[in-house]
């Protein structure tokens, strides 16, 4: 695709909700001083790093037309497992840190493989299985910590999120690297295209010889892995672990994906939008806070903003469809 077409394609790829979102961001920029300044932008990106990683995995599941309710629970157990390990060591070495990261990833992957096997290969209901995994994740974390909270981790580990490279926080760096990898995976590999195919028409995908079971399995495994990596970033940032760290992430990830323009019945949208969705939600929370609203009002307005964004998308799509129907149909 030539440069021009790429540019046009990119603009086309921006859904209605994104335009509305960009509009809101500019509104904030006008009202708040230095909202789009380097320091605040870094802040926003930092705050969205964990969400964007979780949402990366969620995007794939939603493209299939399903949802992965387990990510919150997986984040929790992954972070808690690593946390317990790190606190069990007297003095933390780089090797310990690496092992901690590995634990996060491995726990996440394990849950993902479980989900993928049950849902993709054995074809159990995705709601029930992922919900069950979620409960097990939260539950395990609560059990092994006896309901307590772990906090205070070694700075070597915390460097994973809090360290800085070239002026960027490490969590942003990791998020960027992961985003690049996921973008490639989703838009440029057969696996990614097959996700769209299955979500669009599973019957067609089956008939075309796509290994639907394998693709589903991989998607859930990947989602679990993403949750594990997100747990690593989260643990390093918030410096605490325990039974509630991942609470709400499943719903927030879904929201980021949907705000980014990926529909929940699958087959449309993609990770490009999710990145925007995650950053946008973070930007909104940031802006609402800077305006000076109380925490409580922030919540209210966040809800209003999300409704407004999606509403804009829904209505503009309806109008667009109406307009195209009006052009009396000539058979081609």
């Amino acid at each position: 695709m030539s440069g021009m077409n790429r540019g046009k394609g990119f603009i086309k790829g921006i859904s209605g909700s994104m335009w509305a979102g960009i509009g809101l961001i500019f509104l904030f920029a006008v009202v708040i001083e230095n909202y789009l300044g380097a320091r605040n932008v870094m802040n926003i990106l930092r705050n969205s790093s964990v969400l964007v990683v979780v949402a990366a995995g969620m995007t794939m599941i939603i493209l299939l037309g399903e949802i992965d309710m387990s990510v919150g629970g997986v984040i929790t157990i992954a972070a808690t497992s690593a946390g317990l390990y790190l606190q069990s060591v007297e003095t933390v070495t780089i090797g310990n840190v690496l092992l901690g990261v590995l634990i996060c990833a491995a726990v996440g992957l394990a849950f993902g493989i479980f989900n993928g096997y049950m849902i993709g290969i054995r074809k159990f209901n995705y709601w029930l299985v992922s919900f069950g995994s979620m409960s097990m994740g939260f539950g395990l974390a609560k059990g092994i910590t006896n309901g307590g909270v772990l906090s205070g981790f070694d700075t070597k580990f915390r460097w994973i999120s809090m360290g800085e490279v070239l002026g960027l926080s490490m969590c942003i760096v990791w998020a960027l690297l992961i985003c690049a990898a996921v973008l490639f995976l989703q838009y440029r590999t057969r696996f990614g295209l097959h996700l769209y195919a299955i979500g669009d028409s599973e019957a067609c995908a089956l008939n075309s010889g796509i290994n639907v079971r394998k693709t589903r399995f991989l998607a859930y495994a990947f989602s679990g892995l993403m949750a594990g990596l997100a747990a690593m970033l989260l643990l390093a940032r918030t410096n605490s672990a325990g039974a509630a760290v991942g609470e709400g992430y499943e719903f927030n990830a879904i929201a980021a994906v949907v705000v980014g323009g990926t529909a929940m019945d699958g087959g449309k949208g993609g990770f490009k939008g999710t990145i925007f969705g995650a950053v946008f939600i973070s930007a909104m929370k940031n802006g609402l806070q800077l305006i000076g609203l109380s925490n409580y009002w922030q919540q209210v307005l966040l809800g209003v903003v999300i409704i407004a964004i999606i509403l804009y998308d829904v209505i503009s799509t309806k109008l667009r469809v109406k307009k195209s129907l009006r052009r009396v149909y000539s058979d081609g």
Partner: peptide, 23 residues
Amino acid sequence: RTGLPPFVATYSMNWIGKGSALV
């Protein structure tokens, strides 16, 4: 009536409602 996906609508209303209660 407006066609918002149930997930989005109720998720947002949840924030609005919880926030309102706190306010």
